[in-house]
């Protein structure tokens, strides 16, 4: 195994068309940001998949831990009053 430095990993986000959000498309390696953008263009938009690209070096992404998923996300489960169907109104009522 050579001890040469590898090109860092970048995460690629692509906006498929204006009006839509950028979505995670995948990853790639690049030595700098400009190259990451160009590589992303060449790797992930060969079939007109995008009109805009974001790249971010993977090491800069902070993520929640799956073990904390319970405390983070389950408390929202019983807050049904945040959803419109919680409120009972007569069917004949329109535009509400």
């Amino acid at each position: 195994m050579s001890d040469k430095k590898q090109w860092p990993i970048w995460e690629v986000f692509i906006r498929s068309k204006n009006g839509l959000e950028h979505r995670h498309a995948g990853s790639l390696h690049a030595s700098d940001a400009e190259m990451a953008l160009e590589n992303a263009r060449d790797v992930y938009t060969r079939r007109q998949e995008g009109v805009s690209i974001w790249v971010v070096e993977s090491k800069h992404i902070h993520a929640t831990n799956p073990e904390e998923a319970g405390e983070l996300f389950e408390p929202a489960a019983d807050k049904v009053y945040r959803h419109p169907t919680f409120y009972v109104l007569p069917d004949e009522l329109k535009h509400i």
Binding site: H29, D42, V43
Partner: peptide
């Protein structure tokens, strides 16, 4: 020299 560059030059 690596996959990314290979793909780019083919484009």
């Amino acid at each position: 020299p690596n996959l990314e560059t290979d793909i780019a030059l083919t484009n």
